[in-house]
Design a binder for these strands. Structure first.
Lengths: 235, 235
DNA sequence: GACTGTGAATAGTTTCACAGCG
DNA sequence: CGCTGTGAAACTATTCACAGTC
């Protein structure tokens, strides 16, 4: 079902970032070998990853930085505007809202939401924090494409459900829990709708879980032989 | 080289979190089917993942929550203390330092480092921010196990190199760049040591890259058919 | 001659079916 | 009888070797 490996998409994002860096340094040409070295992968991998989406290089010559950059931005959907809401405006949500780099790609924060009376009404960046009850109407009126979820874990599922019900199609989940369509859960037999979860159809969830990363790091620090180290075997 | 799939480790972390939740709800027994549903994976997968590390269940009965939880904590290395430094104490670094949940697993923040004169000397949580120049001695004197890297991208490689040189064995990298041993880079031919990168041998890097997550989300929102949706096909 | 693009081989991961055991 | 644990099958991803072309 995945004709393009999901790992390939992560690598494309890395290649794009490298191309941007090369561009700021006025380096206009590169090669699969050069990109591979900078990205910490093999040159085969770079060529294969690019080949899933087209032919961007010139045989014998390599790649032209601005052209490959433009093509990768197109492939990744980064040459269009994305309207984003952040749900959860605590310390983490504020750090996200203020993190530089998002606006480089036309990711525009159009709304911030929280439940806390201490936060609602406050100004964060150029936006006023709204109550999460306003989310539904806001999403519809403002053509919101994505939501970033930065609430405490115990509220994540409900907040995610609210986003999906409101019509958000993509969620970047920062909470250390699995969010998704929930089966009935209560002992009460689900004689009600079997279409629970139907509004999740087509919704994309990407997780950015710092606590999980910390635990994986603990494991691999104890078991380094189970992980490809960043020290490459060959080139 | 990886007899245990890396994805399996991520899933073990998820199972552990689910077991903790079950424990707080006083649910003392579970099964591969139950865990699978809560984690959003198949029951086969749960059993296979656990089987990499031992036999934790009882045939015909399922798993005892506290026992499986204890075993997973042991496997993941979460029943020992980890001394952690945070390098980079801007908004993101402070959000990390204050994020609840790390101390549940004996992750202890023992030092905070930055270069900014505005931050050095300031109090964050119960720690005083130190200058990064003190990192080397600090790591040696305080048996630091891991470093969390939350500096701006252009400083990440140097800061990571400083951590590794100081003796840090595991890095959780929040910066949106690839860090690792660097080949010479300058035009000047590398007649010098070929053992560049040798101090990276055995160092584990885990990345938590929010900007990359955002871009992957953009891609999959445009190409939902390339991603397994969170809506399960069957159970 | 150099470097890309790609079908074929290899390696790795997930799924499956069922044997094993309480 | 129910649910775990596991070898074998199916599938997916990566590596490789080389044909194609500038």
């Amino acid at each position: 079902m995945a004709e393009v490996p999901t790992a390939a998409i992560s690598r494309l994002v890395t290649y794009l970032r490298i191309l941007e860096e090369l561009e700021t340094r006025d380096i206009s040409r590169t090669s699969s070998t050069d990109l591979a070295e900078r990205a910490g992968v093999s040159a085969f991998q770079v060529r294969k990853d690019l080949a899933y989406f087209g032919r961007f290089g010139t045989r014998g010559m390599g790649y032209t930085v601005p052209i490959l950059k433009r093509e990768l931005m197109r492939v990744l959907g980064l040459n269009q505007t994305w309207n984003v809401v952040i749900v959860g405006v605590g310390r983490l949500g504020q750090a996200i809202a203020n993190y530089p780099g998002a606006s480089d790609y036309q990711f525009q924060y159009v709304g911030l939401f929280d439940v806390s009376p201490e936060l609602v009404g406050r100004q964060v960046r150029d936006l006023t924090v709204r109550h999460i009850g306003e989310l539904r109407d806001f999403v519809r009126e403002n053509k919101v494409d994505m939501g970033f979820l930065a609430v405490p874990p115990e509220r994540a599922q409900d907040a995610a459900q609210a986003m999906v019900t409101a019509g958000v199609r993509g969620i970047l989940n920062f909470a250390p829990v699995v969010i998704g369509p929930r089966p009935p859960e209560g002992r009460a037999e689900s004689n009600a709708q079997q279409e629970i979860g139907d509004d999740w159809r087509g919704v994309i969830v990407e997780n950015v879980d710092f606590l999980a990363g910390m635990k994986r790091l603990a494991f691999y620090t104890l078991n380094p032989h189970l992980k490809d180290s960043p020290v490459p075997e060959d080139t």
